[in-house]
Structures are given as structure tokens and as C-alpha cells.
Simulated scan of single mutants.
Amino acid sequence: MFSFRPGLRLAGRATRSTVRSGSQFQQLPPFQPRRSIYQRPRYTRFNNRRGGQWSNDQEQWGSFGPLYRAQYIWRSYQKPIVFVGAGGTLFYVYNLEEVPITHRRRFNILSPETEKQLSEGAYQSTLQEYNGRILSSNHPLTKQVARVVERILPATGGLAGDDWRVHVIDDPQMKNAFVIPGGKVFVFTGILPICKTEAGLATVLGHEIAHNVAHHMAERLSRSSLTLLASLLFALLFQVDTRISNSAVDLLLELPNSRTQETEADHIGLLLMAEACYDPREAVAFWERMKASERYAPPQLLSTHPSSYNRVDHIEKWLPDAQTIYIDKGCSGLRQFATDFKQTMRSQQPRGVQGQGKQPWTSKRDDDDDGFL
């Protein structure tokens, strides 16, 4: 070991002497050990390459699939998206309007005349569906419903000029009523016991007529193009089937809007019945009875209608305004009409189909009007 060290010293001196050239000293390159294959980088980063696909100011938004696809679409079609988006925004804002009475802003591109034309097919198909079960125009229940409609119509403004037709469908199991735009009223006998009084029936008809006062059908048809676009965009970003995207759009957009319309119809209908001299407090009693008659109701999140509990809560908040209208109209002396409906229900119960093929009750006004139901 001791004899090996002097040998190393001599070898070092000999090496240094061989690299000297004149007065200049040439430094040897540093020793670089051979890199093992296990020390090589596993991947190459391109996000910092100038002139490549990515740069420092174009980093990915995230590895989440929908965000990555949205980033790709935006970078690939940025100019068309900006152009179409700006035009669509201007078109949307231009077609915004206020709902009568509630003053809610909404998107609507259909006129009342167009909506009535589109609803004519629905009216004919409804007549065919319930053919043979529609009570005659001379039936006491049809006359009772027509009487309530006639009292409410003056409060609707121009709607009284439509071609109004009242149909009562003999179906004790169906607790429903609806009004097709253009003045076509349909009431099922199953809801009449829940109405109990004429004011209760006015609650139902005021609500259904309010849908048309607020142009809700036109709003739904106008929104259909927006919901279709939202469904396609959802399917593209999340790479799901169109049925799943349609369900998601219904849950997030359509159902909330439907519940908004139903709540709005409750508000407008309450004011209409008060204007027609029906005690608005009867609306609370009607929805209490409706809540008691419900065997099963889906969660409000999955329903097109708000729950009966929430409806009662909202109506109680609107009652002071409705009561003011009721008192200002001088309606306190019309309480004797409240018992007419009970007497009609006791004396004239529908026993099967009566008066098949007869004409429904129609209003005396046949001239066209811009309003619709």
C-alpha cells in the first residue's frame, strides 16, 4: 500500500507534463460518467416550446375531460364562436319581454296569433282523444264552469274577444283542468269535488287562464331552441348519449322554468279571481284540500309543479294585494253566489256520458283578438 502511493504521484507528474504546450495550459474536459438507461427522462414536455403546439401562455385548463374538450373547441373555433355568440346574445336580448302583472323578463319570439295557430292542432287532437266523454253544453256542470269563465274573462283584458269554448270531460279519476290558447277550456269532473265551491273552481280556472295571460306556451316553444342547443353542447362536452343529455337539461333548465311558470300562474290567477269578485282566501282552502287529496307527490326537484305546501305559502304572501283588489271592487255583497256551486254539485252529478256529439258551450264573442290562453 505504501509503495503504491509514490507510483501515483509519478504518474500524475508525467500526465501534467504532457498537456503543457509552451506557456499555455490546456484543461482537460470534466469527467462525465455514462448515463444509465434508467436515468433517462420518461417523457418530453412540449408546453414550453415556442413555435410548437403549446407555449407558456397556452397551458391546459385541466385534465378533466369536459374542460379539455371545451379548450380544444375554443382554440380551434374561436372566431366562429365569438361571432355566433355575439349574434345570439343580441338576438336573445332583443326578444326579451316582460310578463304581464309579474314583470318577469323572459325570452319569447312568438306572437299571440302564431301561438293560437299552433294550438289549433292540439285542440282537435284533444277533442278526438276524449270523444264520447264530453258533457253537453246544456249540462249543469258545463254551465257552471262557463259561468265562472265569463266572470273571469273581463279581468284578462283583450282575451274576452277570443272564440271561447268550454268542455267538461266526464272522468271522476282525473283531477285536472287546462286551457288551450285561443280560449279552449277543458275541465275534468274529478277536480270538481276538490273545488267544493265556486270560488274553488275560480281558483283552478284563474290559474289555467293565467297561463295564457302570461303567454307561457309561447315561452316554452321559444325556449325549445335554447334547450336543444344546451342538450347538444352537454352531449358534446361530456361524451354522453343524447337521452342522458336531454334528461340533464330537463333537470337543470326545463323543470325549474316550468315551476316558475306555475308559481307565476298562481300569482296572476289569484289576482284574476279577486278582480272577478271571488274571495281570494278560498285559494288557500283549495290548495289545502288538494294537498290532502294527493296520495303520492314526487319531490319538487323532479316535478314540473311546485309542491302544494309551497303553493299555499306563496299564496298567503300574495293575499294582501288580492284582498285589496277584492275590497276595492266592492265584492263583499256577492257572497250569496258561493253556495250555487254546492247546490249544482249535489243535484247534477254526471251519470255516464250525456249529450254526445252536441256543441260545447261557446262565448258570444267570436271576433279575433291578440290575447290567448
Rank of each mutant, 00 (worst) to 15 (best):
D368K: 13
V249I: 15
Q349N: 04
A70C: 07
N246M: 13
R104Q: 13
D321N: 09
P33H: 11
V213A: 07
H211E: 03
A122P: 00
R16F: 12
F107S: 01
G206C: 03
Q348T: 08
D368F: 12
M174E: 15
P100F: 10
P6E: 12
S231Y: 05
P306T: 03
V249C: 04
K291L: 13
G158M: 05
S303R: 07
A322T: 05
W164N: 01
W54H: 08
H207E: 11
D162F: 01
V187M: 10
H211K: 07
D369W: 11
I37K: 08
G121A: 11
A276L: 04
R75V: 00
S111N: 05
I268L: 11
K329W: 02
G355N: 14
S308I: 00
D368T: 10
Y38T: 12
Q53I: 09
E115H: 01
E294H: 09
R311Y: 03
G88C: 04
R133K: 14
P112A: 07
Q124H: 13
Q144H: 04
A202S: 12
S224A: 14
L135C: 02
G88H: 01
D163Q: 13
D370M: 10
T362D: 01
F31Y: 12
N257L: 14
A199M: 02
K317D: 07
G206F: 06
G121M: 12
E150I: 00
L110F: 15
V149M: 04
R50K: 13
S76W: 04
R243K: 13
R69I: 11
A292P: 00
N176R: 07
A177R: 05
K175S: 08
T362L: 05
V284P: 04
K329P: 01
N310S: 10
L96V: 11
L67Y: 12
L237G: 04
V19G: 07
